[in-house]
Design a protein around this nucleic acid. Structure first.
Lengths: 340, 340
DNA sequence: TTTAGTTGGACGTAAAATGTCCCGCCGTTA
DNA sequence: TAACGGCGGGACATTTTACGTCCAACTAAA
């Protein structure tokens, strides 16, 4: 059963949405017993006319009876709702969890894929796909998108699919930083996204750990300057979320810095910043690119991370409070809710 | 698995069509390896533009890669097609059967519901629902519909659902005939259909087995005359199909008439006529209403019957050759094909 | 180099979806 | 009993979407 639903989700994403909508309507009527169109419209948050079209379909299917006093489910309508409950849980079951996470961290939107990224590579891929969908749906014409690095971001990029070319979009790395493996660098990811979508991109080649002097010098370079300005004007920011200690090691921070991080209670890392349990910034990576104020100014900030081991880190970054959208998996979501 | 799909079909009536269409597209690309839009359009029999919209969905879902040389399935697209093959067989298995029956009897359209009406009442209901759908889809504004009696027709009527009122349609009994139980009389069925749809109806109260004289007299009655004229002008005729002997018994024909029927090889009964194996009329019910020439003149003739026991009778009536649409079940269809 | 086939863009038209308003009906309440 | 509020459903202008059609740019193979 699981299988056919998965297939349908891939093949008929539009119809699945419609299905949810129609089930929602039926379910409300089921609960209300008998209810009028206008009342119902308010309750399921649709305009009256659009609801009406849906009701016509349901009536055609014989699921709905109409009387002057209002609408009621027919026998087969009631039966359908009852039979559907477990199926709906299966298909849309994570929406409750999504809503819980959304309100817990005050986010605009939360997408949760089923499973645990720590346990299976397949889930990691799904997470990437979900992330790419969110990014695609957030994109408007002319948008500049700043992306961070990391393996999750790389998977997101590799799963990105677009119906048409996006010639007037830009992808840029959110920050410099060449320390990591090339595949996972923000530069690489920005360029892959651009290639997959027909968009344009810019790279930012600024080494980590620059002295203040060298930093100032390199920032004088017109082409570096130009890229940095573009990064700072990004309307959309997409980033992964990491464990602070792991990230520090991967970035080869000095031992004393690492100790300092531990002392300050650094727990999570995102877009070059290190956060403690309460979401406070305790350290920042020394490189050019997106600053905190740019993140605050960005239109849409999307965080992507999954796996139960990252739950706490995700909670920490979400408490920081500048993300709009979180894409995660079931295990991480449950774990994150424990650390609200 | 069957169950979940059945439920979804109620909520999304065109789910199957869309799914089949998209699968078909993917499958062709799968077979072709790499193929262009125009070639593909011809191969799946769609216009170029409509195919293009579908392709966009598939591309968005990451199932499809596009290159200047043509389109190819992505890895997950290939996987999807492979996973779908058995599912498609199960879900769409009946469409092959439908096509076989359609061509065997030269019909315009065949609808087959899974199962055997003889075995389960549930299937009988499904048959009724399928029949009501066909009738609904055939209806145009202003149509006069002549319906016959019988338990299948009664179930069809009770399952009829319409999205909106049909005030300018008429339902009339195809023939007189009061011999049977009231619930199954054509008059009752016409009135129920009218009530369920907001359409108008006329009744025809003419007893069976009238003498020629009485028949002529009753036909002089203006209101009888009027109804009969309306019946004969019906654009749509809907009828069940019965076993000749059973029907003869139910209509309380005289023993000698029954013997005659047997002698003439009467096998099936439909709209008051008895047919032999080859589809030739061997007897007619003596009552007012639709004549053979009216059936030939009707725009749409819909036959509804199911159950393996009726397979032969169905084949016989279909050979008669004036039906346009057949609604039946899996068992009857298989049986009918044996008697082509 | 030519040719046939490909994608993607563009655009006017047709069709469907939608917002909006109103009417007549019915049960309830004053 | 009369007024009222909520009901379904009809109607219609308008917006949005789908669709048919044509064309330009490009590529791979002949």
């Amino acid at each position: 059963m699981r299988k056919i639903v998965d297939i349908q989700k891939k093949l008929l994403p539009d119809l699945m949405q419609v299905m949810e909508k129609r089930y929602d309507i039926l379910h409300r009527i089921y609960l209300a017993g008998t209810i009028g169109r206008r009342t119902l419209a308010a309750s399921v948050d649709m305009t009256e006319r659009i609801l009406r079209s849906e009701l016509e379909v349901l009536r055609t299917q014989g699921l709905l009876d109409t009387a002057p006093a209002g609408m009621t489910l027919s026998a087969s309508g009631k039966q359908l709702v009852e039979e559907m409950e477990p199926i709906v849980k299966e298909i849309f079951g994570l929406s409750d969890l999504e809503e819980a996470v959304r309100t817990a961290f005050g986010l605009k939107r939360v997408i949760i894929v089923p499973g645990d990224s720590d346990a299976s590579d397949h889930i990691k891929m799904e997470l990437g796909r979900a992330g790419s969908r969110v990014l695609r749906d957030s994109l408007s014409s002319g948008d500049v998108v700043a992306v961070m690095g990391g393996s999750t971001m790389a998977r997101m990029a590799s799963q990105f699919a677009t119906p048409s070319q996006m010639k007037d979009n830009w992808f840029v790395p959110a920050r410099g930083g060449l320390g990591e493996s090339v595949d996972y660098q923000a530069n690489t990811i920005a360029s892959e996204l651009a290639k997959r979508t027909g968009a344009r991109y810019r790279m930012l080649h600024v080494p980590d750990h620059l002295s203040e002097e060298a930093y100032q010098t390199i920032m004088q370079e017109p082409n570096v300057r130009e890229v940095v300005d573009m990064i700072r004007s990004a309307r959309i920011v997409v980033h992964g979320i990491g464990d602070a200690i792991t990230m520090a090691r991967r970035r080869k921070l000095k031992d004393e810095t690492k100790e300092e991080l531990v002392k300050d209670g650094a727990l999570a890392e995102a877009f070059g910043y290190y956060f403690d349990r309460s979401g406070k910034v305790v350290h920042r990576m020394a490189t050019a690119g997106l600053r905190l104020e740019d993140i605050e100014a960005a239109g849409v900030v999307i965080g992507i991370a999954g796996g139960s081991s990252k739950g706490e880190a995700i909670a920490s970054v979400m408490r920081f409070g500048h993300d709009d959208v979180l894409v995660t998996d079931e295990a991480a979501a449950i774990e994150a809710l424990r650390h609200v």
